[in-house]
Nucleic acid binder design. Structure first.
Lengths: 253, 253
DNA sequence: CACGTTATGACAACACCGTTGACCTGGAAA
DNA sequence: TTTCCAGGTCAACGGTGTTGTCATAACGTG
């Protein structure tokens, strides 16, 4: 077998399926995205995708080496969708907020693609464009280079990691997702004040807060901290304690 | 069938397996964690776990309702490993920093398991203890209830999501991980200043920064923003939107 | 227009997976 | 000593991704 997949631009004979559809990389990726959006997390299987396309499942292996290959193609399309919609205004804080929320929202629309994707460095066109855009916003705002890179790193990793976390929740089978909702209402909200005073005291707030994503609040906090540092750079004074705390990094990896 | 699983404390007859091992919740969870660590996340299947334990796969269904139930038990054990080591000092900011870095580190020690579990709400003992502890630290520091819950949410989700992001990198096959490292050095560091001025200007810093985790820096920014809000609550001026009157907190639990 | 070539879709099979109903058996309780 | 049933075992079901083989329609060529 070895190499049955052919690059899209090298295709010459487009033969219709038994059911009449003409396959293409583009059609397959779009159908996969639609399948995910319409029927939830577990709906993306080779067999179901084949059925949705009106083709034998094995026909897909003429277009993608395996399911991971297919998912990366979906991921690339996702990044593009986010970036193509973004229009910067020139106000750095508003622009980062908008971009962060847009990325987060677009990833939530396709949870399992986000899950398998958002920890990868692709080095492809859209990703490069994103890096350039964000760094431009920060340097344009007056952040010194080193600080701009640090804030960029936090911003991007935070956005992607929250996207993954929230996507993981969305990607859960319906039963498990309801069980998580129920854990807050059924378990935490009923703990006695004697044994768990802090949970008991905050239970109503806790139930309401944990039902939604923490990303918007986390983003605001990071933006606020970034602005504070920007002020410190512009009007130099003593840096706030812990601003450069010595902490172990992850190491080269 | 309906209910074949029996709670651990209600077990009375412990019959050895055909191969001689005596099963228990504890033994199964530990074996699962070992399996994941040694052979990757994909190695955790009921059949393989059964084989590793020297038992029929279906025997596990006497201890866990399904594989998801087992996974939640693994997740809680992971939380427990962090929590058992933690000793609070009473200084809220230092305690949260320590706890966050400890959790992050412990999750990195089991990247594959972290990936599978860190988006889950287990509702089990260790998780409850963690919630109570963190809320106690924040309320003890003087955060009003609503603010304490909000900061708790950001802190926990940020820690877990970064843990997942960094775990995903660690869990990549060696080849893919090297490819990511190379993308920064080989692709980004070589982009021409004409087309990508911001990347080119910051390339050396970028390569150095992106090689490590963004979590410590992100954590510092969130802690700084939290402290700023706490200050606003304590020395009343124009309160930040959403802030409430201060409530005397209790000591850390 | 007819003719090979061959790209590409279809089929069938493989090895796994989680899960469950029925069975059997040995340990504990009486 | 007897009884009972918790708990381990077996076999089967329907699902999954993947691939070796075959059939055929679409193309380049004459």
């Amino acid at each position: 077998m070895s190499e049955r997949v052919v690059p899209e631009e090298g295709r010459r004979r487009r033969r219709p399926t038994k059911q009449g559809t003409v396959l293409s990389e583009r059609l397959i990726v779009d159908t996969a995205l639609r399948l995910i959006g319409e029927h939830g997390a577990g709906a993306l299987t080779v067999r179901r995708l084949g059925a949705s396309l009106g083709a034998d499942p094995s026909a897909l292996y003429r277009y993608f080496r395996d399911t991971d290959d297919l998912l990366l193609a979906v991921a690339d399309e996702l990044i593009g969708r986010t970036l193509r919609r973004f229009r910067p205004t020139g106000a750095w804080r508003a622009d980062l907020r908008t971009l962060g929320l847009m990325m987060h929202a677009d990833y939530q629309a396709h949870p399992q693609a986000a899950l398998l994707t958002c920890a990868r460095v692709t080095g492809r066109a859209y990703e490069i464009q994103a890096v350039e855009t964000i760094l431009g916003i920060l340097r344009g705002a007056g952040f010194p280079d080193a600080e701009a890179v640090r804030v960029y790193h936090v911003f991007v990793d935070q956005t992607l990691s929250f996207a993954a976390l929230d996507a993981a929740t969305l990607a859960l089978p319906a039963g498990a997702r309801e069980a998580e909702e129920g854990a807050w209402r059924g378990t935490y909200a009923r703990l006695p004040a004697q044994s768990h005073p802090h949970i008991a005291a905050t239970a109503p707030v806790l139930v309401a807060e944990m039902g939604r994503s923490g990303y918007p609040a986390a983003l605001e906090m990071v933006l606020a901290a970034a602005q504070a540092r920007l002020g410190a750079v512009r009007s130099p004074g003593p840096p706030p304690p812990g601003a450069r705390a010595a902490v172990p990094g992850r190491g080269p990896g």
